[in-house]
Design a protein around this nucleic acid. Structure first.
Lengths: 255, 255
DNA sequence: CGACGCGTTGCATCATATGCAACGCGCGTT
DNA sequence: AACGCGCGTTGCATATGATGCAACGCGTCG
């Protein structure tokens, strides 16, 4: 909508591919060098791009800060975190929390073993949206039209023999998932990894997030993992209750 | 330099404080609502802001992706990582890698115990620049003028009794550090934590990064930690050699 | 020593961002 | 139920501010 800003922001993904010099940026944008220079300078002042010693530009440190603060604003995460920890303590396996946004599914929290690690490393990387149990739950809840549009716009990589092969299979799976209210990924992403997931519903009944438990089948078989389903669902429901009894100040649950 | 872009980018830190609606954004920017709307729309198209269901805006998912890619472009990290792991295996303590950028010091990698955890959680958050051993090394190497400017622009929080109290003490410490070629933080940030750090020098001899070993003094005393100094320095030198024997394709070190 | 490549600057032009005013809509109030 | 307020949205005339050009500085390579 705003050409200047549009151009400036187009520089960011461009630099994400690697450092570039002024000429390269100007060429890729299709603008004059002096224009690119001014845009880069502005981005630079805001810390979004950094000028390294060889004069080339790369993405800047402020991006980290912003991403950091962005994730901290996701209040589902805050509310859910203690529940994830408890769930992990009960079963010992890896626990993930994910949300849907703009055609993507993002992990926004993770608890592994006893080490509560903010798994920022996964955030931003494309989740295996066609196979991940949490993705199925989040997509299954989209309005019909959007669901179809998203499903048909996806690639369906064959991670394993059990990966979802195409859009129609995926939509069918989503229908099942919506029906039953939980989802699994049995070796669809990595041959030896299974997951069970359950939806976190907000006050409006829509799926606000999804949480999952994952384990390699050398530790527990898929059948054993499925026995955790009630626990997973109970946890997800508990999160949903906390979340929709929406306390902007969740430290004061009374009143 | 570019007013439009400048305004648009100013929205990001604003939203980092929390979700905001159109009116709030327009007010904070001091522009008309319609202007703010167009800027937000442009940011939205690029995924930097997200419009949540209550119509308010918050930071978007693309930020995660960009931050992710940005960190992957920091090639010091890639080159250094195996060294950090080896250092950790030798001594068992937490190992950090940090760089300086634009008045800030950032941790860009971390290895703890036997768990190779990407410490993205620290990235973007302000490092305790006035006391951290790595920060001292990175700042000590800045050109005189910039070093003074940075040092005098800092706050000097008294984390502990041994925190650096003010700019002049800090500059003095930096001089010492530059002289001796290594640095420590003995309880300057947290009473019971000590660090030793050494600089990673690039081909030009400048300090490109710094790495440190940290341990609580209930595990090892400061004196014992200091015995690791030769190992830390050797590791940092090794990273520097790898780094300045710059192989853009570090998997093929011959030729 | 000359020429090229690259980043940088000042400036005239006009494309483009801006603010205004009016509209639509949902929600709480009377 | 009707009204009015608040908020987001749209179209448009204006002039501000972004654009590309041409010229310059500077370092490097031939």
């Amino acid at each position: 909508m705003s050409q200047t800003v549009d151009r400036a922001l187009s520089i960011l993904p461009l630099l994400a591919e690697g450092p570039a010099d002024l000429g390269q940026v100007a060429d890729r944008l299709g603008v004059h060098k002096s224009t690119a220079l001014r845009l880069l300078r502005t981005l630079n002042e805001h810390g979004l791009v950094y000028r390294q010693s060889d004069q080339r530009y790369r993405l800047g440190a402020r991006l980290f800060a912003l991403a950091q603060e962005a994730v901290e604003n996701l209040d589902v995460r805050e509310i859910a975190h203690p529940h994830l920890v408890r769930l992990n303590e009960s079963c010992g396996h890896t626990v993930h929390l994910a949300v849907y946004e703009d055609g993507e599914v993002l992990y926004i929290d993770k608890v592994e073993s006893r080490y509560p690690v903010r798994m920022y490393s996964r955030i931003g990387k494309p989740v295996a949206i066609t196979v991940a149990a949490v993705a199925k739950l989040l997509l299954a809840d989209l309005p019909e039209a959007e669901r179809r549009a998203v499903a048909e716009g996806l690639d369906y990589p064959r991670y394993t023999a059990r990966s979802t092969p195409d859009a129609s299979a995926f939509l069918k799976e989503l229908a099942t998932v919506r029906e039953q209210g939980w989802a699994t990924d049995l070796g669809g992403h990595e041959e030896s990894i299974n997951c069970v997931a359950a939806p976190v519903r907000g006050a409006d009944g829509r799926v606000a997030a999804a949480l999952s438990v994952s384990a390699p089948n050398v530790v527990v078989t898929a059948e054993e993992l499925l026995t955790l389903l009630p626990l997973v669902r109970r946890t997800a429901d508990a999160v949903g209750r906390d979340y929709s009894g929406q306390a902007p100040t969740p430290d004061d649950p009374k009143e």
